[in-house]
């Protein structure tokens, strides 16, 4: 082969190679696309399943009355209320500490051992399995502090569990406030706390609220931590009536219907209804938080 012929052959090989590479690239990308669809697919499927099976169980009676006849009939209203009280109470207990931690981490912390230790603490708490929180809640609130199996114990246990989420979200919201605001306030002779109170916090409130909503959404769906600290299935008085009494919540009611009740197959429509209500609440809360968050981000005038 002459030198020219060799050059031409090289060109041909390169083009061949390029074609092959684009074919394999196309194949790879298609595979990837299909693979990534799985996530969408499952979400869509689960939502569809919940709605189609559960919507039929929903009616006014279901949402406003208590379970009857060994939970085969009636509604889940006390459980809805129980969930609301438990979650709201948990948020009430956790928020002061979470916000305080976030403020310290974002505004006051000095570089050093304590800062690292607290960060490790928050991150580690985030990794503790929910049932371990249940065990600790049992040991601490139910037994050691003597609250007994009660709404209060459940609230406190859930509060511990929600701490990492609330701290992270609040800290993020605080850090999003531009530094220039802080400098402007300090240069006018404001003390640190005054500056935080009048400039940083008001600006960060939307983000903090979004974080609370997310925390609430997570707490509402939890079963394991409250299983032996707060809940009971088939109580004589299922309506939440005291801080020191047991309560029924949505997720635990579902668990009870499946595992505790002897009539697993007869209560199917109640199960679907419970799942429906739970999913509606959780999805709405999350969507609200997500939309709110993106609106706040876009609206920023600075």
């Amino acid at each position: 082969m002459t030198k020219e012929q060799r050059e031409i052959q090289k060109e041909r090989d390169l083009i061949e190679g390029r074609k092959k590479r684009s074919v394999s690239q196309w194949a790879a990308f298609t595979l990837l696309g299909i693979g990534s669809l799985f996530g969408f697919f499952f979400l869509a499927f689960i939502l569809y399943w919940v709605i189609s099976q559960g919507a039929s169980a929903i009616n006014w009676e279901f949402l406003t009355t208590a379970p009857r006849n060994l939970a085969r009939e009636g509604g889940i209203a006390p459980m809805i209320l129980g969930s609301v009280y438990m979650t709201g109470g948990a948020l009430l207990v956790a928020m002061p500490f979470a916000l305080g931690s976030a403020i310290w981490l974002s505004e006051y912390a000095w570089k050093g051992w304590w800062l690292r230790a607290i960060r490790v603490g928050v991150n580690t708490l985030a990794g503790v399995p929910s049932i371990v929180f249940g065990l600790v809640g049992l040991g601490l609130f139910v037994v050691a502090l003597g609250f007994g199996v009660s709404l209060l114990s459940g609230m406190c246990t859930l509060a511990m569990l929600s701490l990492p989420i609330l701290i992270r979200a609040s800290e993020e919201a605080l850090r999003a406030v531009p530094r220039s605001f802080r400098e402007g306030a300090l240069a006018l002779g404001a003390t640190r706390w005054y500056m935080i109170r009048t400039v940083v916090l008001p600006t960060a409130i939307p983000g903090i609220l979004t974080g609370s909503v997310l925390g609430m959404a997570r707490a509402i769906g939890e079963t394991a931590p409250i299983m032996f600290t707060a809940t009971a299935f088939m109580m004589t008085n299922p309506w939440p009536h005291s801080l020191f009494e047991k309560v029924g919540t949505l997720p635990y009611h579902l668990y009870g219907l499946i595992k505790i009740s002897q009539h697993y197959n007869e209560t199917r429509h109640i199960q679907y209804g419970t799942v429906f209500v739970l999913m509606v609440v959780v999805t709405l809360l999350n969507l609200t938080a997500i939309i709110w968050r993106s609106r706040v981000r876009r609206k920023k005038a600075w």
Partner: peptide, 27 residues
Amino acid sequence: VDRYVFFVLALVSLVALGIILYFIFAQ
């Protein structure tokens, strides 16, 4: 004062973690 108030609040994570470790391992 404010710095220390918030510091004490921030300790809650470590306290919670400590409680968890204590109870689990103690029992």
